[in-house]
Design a protein around this nucleic acid. Structure first.
Lengths: 148, 148
DNA sequence: CCGCATCCCTATAGATACTG
DNA sequence: CAGTATCTATAGGGATGCGG
C-alpha cells in the first residue's frame, strides 16, 4: 500500500526548497509540461510522452500532484473509463518556471530546430506571451469549474 | 569508482527535459541557489545549507555541475586548502528559472516572513530586478576571468 | 582542519508483468 | 484503459579514511 505522503516534512522553509519538495523530481514538471503544451489530459496520453515514463510512476506522480493541489482528477462524462486530469490555478502558475527551464535548455543544450522555435518565441515574447498562455490554460483547465 | 557520466543519454530532445536532465534532481538547484543568493563559494559553506546535504552527494553534484559547465572550480589563492566554486554564464542564466520557482513556492507553500519578503520583491521587481541580479552575479562570479 | 573518496546500508525511483 | 504488484536498480544518508 504505502500511501504517498504529500507532506513528508519539508527540508527547509526556503521557498525554492519548498517548491522543489513538490515538483523537484525527474517527472512532475514533465507531466505538467504535457498538460500545458501538449494538450494532454488522460492517463494514457501522458504515458506516451517521449521520455517514456513507467505506468506506476505516472500513477504515483498524478496522485501526488492531485494531493498537492496542482491537478484535479474528474471522470470523463462521455467515457466512463477515462479520467480527466486538469491543471489548477496553482499548477498553471508553474508555467513561468517551466518556461524558463525551457528557455535555458534551448540556449545551452543541443536541440532540434522545431523545439528551438517554440522556446525562442517564448524568450522573445517574454512576460506578455506568458500572460497570454496562462490565460489560455485557465480557459482550458479551469473553464467550466470556475474556482478551485 | 563509478565516474559520474554527465551525458547519460538524454531522455528526449525537449528543451525542458534536457534542462531537467542537468538540474532536475533533488540538490543541484539548491546548490546553485546558495551560490546565487547566499554568496557561498566554498565546499564547507555549501555543506552547511539548511537542507543538510551529505558530503558525498555534495562532492558528486559539484563535479557534475562543473562537468556540465554550470560551475568553475579554482584554487583559493590565499588559502591553499580551499577551492572556490563560481557560477559560469550558463549557471547564472538559470537565475530566472530558480527565481520563478521561488515565487511559486512563496505563493503556494507556507513560508516564513523573511523568505517571503525576498520572493515578493522578486515578483514585484519582475524582469528588471532579475536583470540587476544577473549583472551582479556576473561581476561576482565571472568578474576577473572575463570569458569562460 | 579541508576537500573529498569509499563503504555500507536503507529508502526511494523505476521497469516489467499483471489485474479489475 | 487505468492503474497495482513485484522485483530490481539507483539515489542518498552516515560514518570513516586519507592525502594535502
Amino acid at each position: 500500500m504505502a500511501h504517498a505522503d504529500t507532506d513528508a516534512a519539508p527540508r527547509s522553509l526556503c521557498p525554492i526548497s519548498l517548491a522543489l519538495d513538490v515538483v523537484g523530481d525527474k517527472w512532475s514538471l514533465l507531466i505538467l509540461r504535457d498538460l500545458m503544451f501538449a494538450g494532454k489530459s488522460h492517463y494514457r496520453e501522458l504515458l506516451q510522452s517521449d521520455e517514456g515514463i513507467s505506468s506506476n510512476i505516472l500513477a504515483e506522480r498524478l496522485k501526488r500532484l492531485v494531493e498537492a493541489g496542482l491537478l484535479t482528477k474528474t471522470d470523463d462524462p462521455s467515457h466512463k473509463q477515462k479520467a480527466i486530469y486538469r491543471l489548477t490555478a496553482m499548477g498553471i502558475d508553474l508555467l513561468p518556471a517551466i518556461a524558463q527551464l525551457g528557455i535555458w535548455g534551448r540556449k545551452y543544450q543541443p536541440v532540434t530546430k522545431e523545439s528551438a522555435a517554440a522556446a525562442a518565441a517564448l524568450e522573445k515574447g517574454g512576460p506578455e506571451l506568458l500572460k497570454t498562455m496562462k490565460a489560455e490554460l485557465r480557459r482550458q483547465h479551469l473553464g467550466k469549474q470556475a474556482a478551485e
